[in-house]
Design a protein around this nucleic acid. Structure first.
Lengths: 236, 236
DNA sequence: CCTGCAATTTGCGATAGCGCAAAACCGGCC
DNA sequence: GGCCGGTTTTGCGCTATCGCAAATTGCAGG
C-alpha cells in the first residue's frame, strides 16, 4: 500500500486540532485505493463497511428512488469525506458513490471509527461541523427548489460547482470534471431537456461555452445576476 | 427556575450513554423557559447564543429568503434538540424558531457546549447522529421534491407528521398541533391554494377531516397508497 | 351575541416546464 | 478513417400547478 504523506492531508478540516504526530497514527489505519473514471465506490443500500476521504478526482453521490429516478446529492471534491454512514448511525449507505474522474481515496474500515474518535475526540467534532454544513446546504437547496424557477436554480448550481471545483481560465471558469446536462438536471430537480434549452440560450448570449460533459462559465458575473433575478424582474 | 427531573429526559437520544448522576450536572447548566403559542424563540440571522431542547409543545423552524418567501424546515417535537448552530459551527441561527403551541424548553448557553462535550464526549456523538439523521431526511425531501407531484408530496408530509406527532383517535390520527394549509405548502414546495384543493378533494373522499389549522387522517392506509402511487399509475 | 380577522375554499385563465420524438452531434475505439 | 453509442439539441403539444381574485367560513375577543 502506498504511504500517504501527512503533510498532504494535515490541513483538512477533518483533521483540525489533531497533532501531526497523531495524524500518522490515524492514517495508518487507512488504506488507499484508486477508482477509475465511472466506477462505483459503493452502492446505495449496501452494508456500510468503510468511510472515505477523497484525495484526487471527483465523486458523485446520487440517490435513486424505487422507481429508478435519480438525484445527485452532491459532488465530492478532493479533501472531503464521504460515505460517513457509520458516523451518523446508518447501517447502509444512503446513496451511491461513483468516481466521475479517475480518483484516489483513503479508506478506513468502520471498525476503526470508535477507536479513533475515542483517542481523537476532535474527529467527531470536526465531522459534526461538516455534516452540519451539509445540512445547511441541503436546506438552501430545498429553499431554492421551493421558491425559484428552473433557470435560477441552474445558475446557482453552476456557480456553486464553479466555486467548489472551478478551474480559472484566461476568460471564465471551467468546471473541472465531466458533468452532463442530465447531472445538472438531477441537481436542480428538472429534466435534461430543460437544462439543455437553458444552456443553449445562455450560450447564444455568450454567458457560457459548453459541450459534451463540459461547461465553461464565460461571464460568471452575469450568471450571478441571473441567479439572483426574481421571477418577475425580467428585462423590459 | 424550575428544577427539571432527570428521569424526564434521561431516555432521550441526546443523553444516550450519559450516566444518570452526570445528567444532573448537565441539566444544572441549563435553564428552562416557557414560550406561549406564536412567540419566536430565536430569529434567523441572530447571533446564536444558546441551544435548546424542547420539553413540551411544538416548535416550527422556518427559513426565509431575502425576498420574503418562507419554507418550513421542520417541526420540532418534544425531546428533540434545536438551534444547534454552535455545535455545527455556525455563528448565526440559520432559521427562525417559533412556538406553534405553548412550549417549554431547556436552554443551554453556547458557552457551556465546549465544557460539556469535553466532559461527556457522547454528547457530540449523539448530536452527530441526530444531525446525520436530519441530513438524510433533507435528502429524502429533495428527492421527493424532484421526482413526485404535489399530491404525493403532501401525502408524504402528512404521514410523516402523523408519525412524529400524531394523536391516535378512535378512527384515524390527528396531527397534534396547529398547522395551516400555508404551513403544509411551505413543507412541500407548493402554494396554499394547491394544498387546499388537494385536502378538499381528500375530504370529499373521506380520507381526511380537516378545519382551521387542524387535520385528521381518517384513512391513513389509503393515504399511504396515494403517497406511493406513481404519476401514471392512477385509477382507470 | 356580535364583530372582525385570519384561514380556507373555489373559480378561472395563464404558463413554465414536462414528455415525447426525432435529428444532429461528438468522441472514442477498432 | 469510419463506425457506434451516448449526449445534446430542438420542435411541439400538453397539463399540472400557479397566480389572482372573490366569496366563505370559523374562531376569538369584546
Amino acid at each position: 500500500m502506498a504511504k500517504v504523506d501527512t503533510s498532504l492531508v494535515a490541513h483538512l478540516p477533518l483533521f483540525a486540532g489533531v497533532k501531526p504526530e497523531d495524524l500518522e497514527e490515524i492514517l495508518r489505519e487507512a488504506r488507499s485505493a484508486r477508482y477509475p473514471k465511472n466506477t462505483a465506490i459503493f452502492e446505495q443500500g449496501a452494508d456500510a463497511q468503510s468511510f472515505f476521504l477523497l484525495l484526487h478526482g471527483h465523486v458523485r453521490a446520487a440517490k435513486t428512488t424505487p422507481t429508478g429516478e435519480q438525484i445527485v446529492v452532491r459532488y465530492v471534491a478532493p479533501g472531503e469525506t464521504f460515505g460517513l454512514a457509520m458516523a451518523i448511525g446508518a447501517a447502509h449507505y444512503p446513496a451511491t458513490a461513483m468516481a466521475v474522474d479517475d480518483s484516489v481515496v483513503l479508506i478506513w474500515p468502520n471498525s476503526a471509527w470508535p477507536r479513533l474518535v475515542e483517542r481523537f475526540p476532535s474527529l467527531t467534532a470536526n465531522t459534526l461541523q461538516t455534516v452540519g454544513a451539509r445540512l445547511q446546504e441541503s436546506h438552501t437547496r430545498i429553499l431554492e427548489m421551493s421558491t425559484q424557477q428552473v433557470e435560477q436554480r441552474v445558475a446557482h448550481v453552476l456557480l456553486r460547482l464553479a466555486k467548489q471545483s472551478g478551474k480559472k481560465l484566461d476568460h471564465g471558469i471551467e468546471i473541472d470534471f465531466p458533468i452532463s446536462r442530465q447531472d445538472i438536471a438531477q441537481m436542480t430537480g428538472t429534466t435534461l431537456h430543460t437544462v439543455s434549452r437553458i444552456l443553449s440560450g445562455w450560450e447564444s448570449q455568450g454567458l457560457v461555452e459548453s459541450g459534451r460533459q463540459r461547461i465553461i462559465l464565460r461571464e460568471p458575473h452575469k450568471i450571478v445576476v441571473l441567479a439572483e433575478r426574481t421571477a418577475d424582474s425580467g428585462p423590459a
